[in-house]
């Protein structure tokens, strides 16, 4: 009766096996530093333009929307704090993660998937390299290191976007906007704003690697793996975001 649950449950189990093996091997030699640096470049520097764009415009629209709502209470001056809080706590981490998931979960899944279907993964194992160490670990480390940086940059650019709207359209002074923003942000906002991207980084890289490494069925399979990786990564990002937010709200 519950047969339809069998495959998803098996997948989740395999996913945790892969994650467990990767985390267990974090300290195990050899460390492929060059591969890690290259992945940081691809994932971090490569995602920067789209992350900047996304961050900037989310700041702009937040400021525009909030000013409308705040106007009814005569509190347009609060735009700075509101933009800061929403960006740092939610929009920055989640939007950046979604963009990077679309870009890099897909990229990782299709790269590893092509390697899988052309037997390059088998070749790697046959030639004495553990794909977990050579492929998964560098991607995990690179994504986890870059994701908080990207998010911080995105938050900052978003604040600038909000500032431009506040200054030119809402006639809020520079010091009112930035001081308001600075004073509202508390320690745990920053903590959750950086913890979230770190966890999303784990999800983005491991989901990409997982679907890449289990690809079967030729080039068509690569396409399928890529799509699945993006969809699953995005779903996990939303679900985990809700959990983390709940935890921080309760504290």
């Amino acid at each position: 009766m519950l047969d339809f649950l069998k495959n998803p449950v098996l997948s989740i189990q395999e996913f945790f096996v892969l994650s467990g093996r990767t985390i267990k091997n974090l300290a195990v030699r050899p460390h492929y530093f060059n591969d890690t640096l290259m992945q940081m470049d691809i994932i971090g520097v490569g995602s920067l333009p789209i992350v900047l764009l996304c961050g900037f415009f989310s700041g702009v629209v937040m400021a525009l929307q909030m000013s409308r709502a705040l106007q009814t209470y005569g509190a347009v001056g609060q735009t700075g704090p509101i933009v800061a809080i929403t960006l740092v706590r939610e929009l920055g981490p989640v939007l950046t993660a979604l963009v990077v998931a679309g870009r890099n979960s897909a990229g990782i899944a299709s790269e590893l998937g092509s390697m899988k279907v052309t037997e390059q993964i088998d070749a790697m194992r046959a030639l004495g390299t553990d794909p977990i160490l050579k492929l998964v670990k560098p991607r995990l480390i690179a994504t986890c290191a870059m994701q908080p940086c990207l998010t911080a940059i995105s938050d900052f650019v978003g604040m600038i976007g909000g500032y431009l709207i506040a200054f030119f359209l809402l006639r809020i002074t520079t010091s009112e906007y930035w001081n308001g923003a600075y004073r509202t942000l508390e320690y745990d906002d920053v903590v959750q704003g950086l913890l979230k991207p770190f966890i999303f980084g784990v999800v983005i890289s491991l989901v990409g690697c997982f679907y890449g490494l289990r690809t079967t069925g030729g080039t068509q399979g690569v396409g399928r793996a890529t799509t699945q990786a993006v969809v699953v990564a995005i779903v996990w990002i939303f679900v985990l975001n809700a959990f983390i937010t709940k935890i921080f709200v309760s504290i």
Binding site: M115, E119, D122, A123, M124, R125, A126, G128, D130
Partner: peptide
């Protein structure tokens, strides 16, 4: 798998599709 690497080091294989990186 870890212990297999030592044995595989004494083997060579040409894959059907070449499997060059």
């Amino acid at each position: 798998e870890k212990e297999l690497f030592g044995l595989r080091a004494r083997c060579g294989i040409l894959f059907q599709e070449g499997a060059l990186f």
